[in-house]
Design a protein around this nucleic acid. Structure first.
Length: 416
RNA sequence: GCCCCCAUCGACUAGCGGUCCAGGUCGCGGCCCUUUCAAGGCCGUAGCGCGGGUUCGAAUCCCGCUGGGGGCACCA
């Protein structure tokens, strides 16, 4: 039997990173087995907000490269089918009316059990399960009715979802039995905590996919990182391509214990991916990111500046701080070092050619003449030219800045 | 209160009875490189929650405790 799984988000404003990790596991599992991965929106109304959220969900997933098969479906579209099933269950005596709602009769004795792929066998005493409301008195089916019914109708073979659904599972199993559907295989993946061990929330930083995107994370790095949260192929490998992830992923190796989201490690991994990018590709990503985030910096200049910062940044949003001096005026006040700054100005005034190599030779010459240590000499020049004590390589920076602007900043700083 | 789940360095994890005085990665500390910041290289730091069993032998199996988490809705 071919594998069929589903991603079933609620249409809320932001796609939570914890949910995305669960969806990623679905996707990896489906792709690994050549199966299908469906996208099913668990909506209960059709407001404009929902439409926007659905849009946002799709955009976010596609940005991460998590795609789906077939058309996406909406829970709301199947409420009539749900109602019919509920009526049938009432007719069969398996459900009953209760103050206008329809309730499903749970068995009163025995146990309901399943072999969870990540947790092993889970058993629940039936006497602890209350009769489940299938249809509310206003006629709308409940989640715990609609969701398992959709799993049956969609031919879902494996339900891979968050562990907050564990206690729903025995209810859903009993319901599926009652309608003579096939019980899917369940895999309950652990939740993700913030760095204080509490539930991941806003105050931990980014939690929505969009926030990670605008923070300058690369989707492939985020996917790699997320995959390793609660899953590991062997305990040694950390950097894995998407293909390798697909090839090596197994549900059996998903951990049962919750993981904390470590932003520092994500940053490290993102930096690894950035440095591994071909320079052209890095520049391309930068240009796109800058455009998405309100910078109208000259693309050609960005392309030239990109190689100077590629080794230095962990996230794309660090680029502006390094390269701003190339695009905007800077405050160049040097305190101390006026002498070397002035000498640098003179050395560069007529330098030909105005290349990093020649600039370095000229400046090193100045440093030697003045009897300074490189460290002491270059820092005032750096501050004068870039307006910051932290910058890309000085000589390359000066070449890119150009003679005219460089001289102006050097002059201005040496007179202050 | 009742039910269910979880428990290895600060973090992510490997480990599925002996090969583990516990391995990898991030972080952190030190050193090297160096025009700043990074990157890179090298070295180091740090852990099996507690108590009982089972066994010749336990991080690995069982029970209890403690600590976390989730659920007990006409929410999803």
């Amino acid at each position: 039997m071919s594998v069929r799984v589903r991603m079933a988000p609620s249409p809320t404003g932001l796609l939570h990173i914890g949910g995305v990790r669960t969806f990623l596991f679905n996707w990896l599992f489906a792709r690994k087995h050549g199966g299908q991965n469906l996208l099913r929106i668990e909506n209960t109304d059709t407001s404009r907000e929902v439409a926007e959220a659905v849009d946002h969900i799709q955009t976010s997933l596609l940005w991460l490269g998590i795609d789906w098969d077939d058309e996406l479906t909406f829970q709301l579209d199947r409420i009539d089918d749900c109602r019919r099933v509920a009526e049938q269950l009432v007719a069969e005596g398996k459900a009953y009316e209760d103050e206008g709602a329809i309730r499903f009769r749970m068995p009163n004795e025995g146990v309901t059990a399943w072999d969870d792929v990540v947790r092993g066998r889970v058993e629940v005493q039936n006497e602890t399960i209350e009769d489940l409301v299938l249809v509310r008195s206003d006629g709308r089916p409940t989640y715990n009715f609609a969701s398992p019914m959709e799993d049956v109708w969609d031919g879902i073979t494996h339900v891979i979802r968050g562990d907050d659904h564990i206690s729903n599972t025995p209810k859903q199993i009993n319901l599926i039995r009652a309608v003579a559907g096939d019980i899917p295989i369940y895999a309950h993946v652990p939740s993700i905590f913030g760095q204080d061990g509490k539930k991941l929330s806003k105050r931990h930083g980014a939690v929505g996919v969009g926030e990670f995107r605008s923070a300058g994370y690369l989707p492939e790095a985020l996917v790699n990182f997320l995959a390793l949260l609660g899953w590991a192929p062997d305990g040694e490998t950390t950097i894995m391509s998407r293909d390798e992830l697909v090839e090596r992923f197994t549900l059996e190796r998903v951990s049962a214990s919750p993981a904390q989201f470590d932003y520092a490690k994500l940053d490290w991994m993102n930096g690894m991916y950035i440095r591994a990018l071909p320079p052209d590709e890095f520049a391309h990503r930068l240009i796109l990111w800058l455009g998405e985030n309100g910078y109208d910096w000259d693309a050609e200049l960005v392309r030239k500046a990109a190689p100077l910062v590629q080794e230095k940044v962990a996230r794309l949003d660090e680029f502006p701080d390094y390269a701003r001096f190339l695009f905007e005026d800077v405050e160049a006040s040097v305190d101390g070092g006026a002498e070397v700054v002035a000498a640098a100005r003179d050395a560069l005034a007529d330098l030909e050619p105005f290349t990093a190599e020649a600039i370095e030779a000229a400046l090193r010459d100045v440093v030697e003449r003045l009897g300074l240590k490189p460290r002491q000499a270059f820092q005032p020049i750096r501050v004068a030219v870039t307006g910051s004590t932290v910058s890309p390589g000085l000589f390359e920076s000066i070449e890119l800045l150009g003679r005219e602007t460089t001289l102006r900043r050097l002059s201005s700083a040496s007179h202050s």
